[in-house]
């Protein structure tokens, strides 16, 4: 039987900027098989909160080849939300997790050669879509440019992407840092022409990137989210409309938790 349910201990928790928390958990067994783009289901200790909170894996950490720590960076969505309870857990708190879940980013697809061009993957993140891309930068074997879009001067994880990627482009909506605008504005300002896009962020950003990639005929992989219950592909709560009939569901719906969360942009209907 594959193990999927773990009871792990919080190693540390800190607030990176207002409402954004960095939780590290000692989870050597779980992280053994985890990859960039996957997520975990976090159960809250308040048992009246029945459902897990899906949180993407920000980083898999460890010393040398021994991976033992799961890093989650997440946003507290409201005062009374489950994520608010999660942010109250101090080091030493025992937490139940289900994972790793989902398909992860297809690293092998990043190496697609374009005629006459070296691979240069655009790793594009918007707001709270940014954290899972950090592990992606660690795992991508080829040249990658991180393109990060923030609302304002709360530039969480920016410095870490500076080290993890070959190049960093930043946009802020209010213009307080980098290019004023969004991630596409930042790419255009640098005249950056990626060979492939891997992205995570709000739906309008994903739509724009899907179109941008289609216009340039480059592969585009997007990580999606939807309200979840089971997290393993059983309850059919978290579906996204697909362009074609899905071979498993036999209708035009794919499961974000199981068939995703990473999809080829043209596979899913983002309207």
């Amino acid at each position: 039987m594959k193990k999927i349910l773990y009871s792990v201990k919080a190693v540390s928790q800190k607030e990176l900027c207002p409402g954004i928390f960095d939780l590290r958990l000692s989870a050597p067994e779980l992280v053994q098989n985890a990859r960039a783009g996957q997520f975990v289901n976090v159960f809250l200790n308040d048992r009246s909160r029945l459902l897990p909170r899906p949180v993407s894996i920000c980083e898999i950490k460890g010393t040398g080849n021994e991976k033992d720590t799961l890093r989650l960076v997440y946003r507290v969505t409201g005062e009374k939300a489950g994520t608010a309870e999660l942010s109250s857990y101090a080091a030493g708190t025992q937490i139940s997790l289900l994972g790793p879940l989902g398909n992860g980013f297809p690293l092998e697809k990043a190496r697609w050669e374009m005629p006459g061009r070296e691979p240069d993957i655009a790793v594009v993140g918007g707001g709270i879509g940014i954290p899972p891309l950090l592990e992606l930068c660690h795992e991508l074997p080829c040249r990658k440019t991180a393109v990060l879009g923030y609302r304002n001067e709360n530039l969480f994880l920016k410095d870490e992407f500076d080290l993890a990627a070959d190049r960093l482009l930043v946009a802020t909506e209010d213009g307080s840092y980098g290019i004023k605008g969004n991630v596409l504005d930042a790419m255009k300002a640098s005249k950056y022409e990626p060979t492939c896009i891997m992205a995570c962020g709000p739906l309008p950003m994903l739509r724009a990137l899907k179109q941008y990639a289609a216009e340039r005929n480059i592969p585009c992989f997007i990580s999606m989210e939807e309200r979840m219950a089971c997290g393993v592909g059983v309850c059919l709560g978290c579906v996204v409309k697909s362009a074609e009939t899905d071979p498993h569901s036999c209708v035009k719906n794919k499961r974000v938790c199981k068939d995703g969360p990473v999809f080829k942009a043209e596979e899913v209907d983002l309207t």
């Binding site: 059919l236 709560g237 569901s249 036999c250 209708v251």
Partner: peptide, 25 residues
């Protein structure tokens, strides 16, 4: 059957609401 549009899931105190809509192959 394709079932209902999302969101199909909501948490409630010690429970959950589902409106999957009987999606099945």
């Amino acid at each position: 059957w394709a079932g209902n549009p999302v969101p199909r899931i909501a948490e409630t105190p010690s429970g959950m609401l589902n409106a999957i809509g009987l999606q099945n192959p």
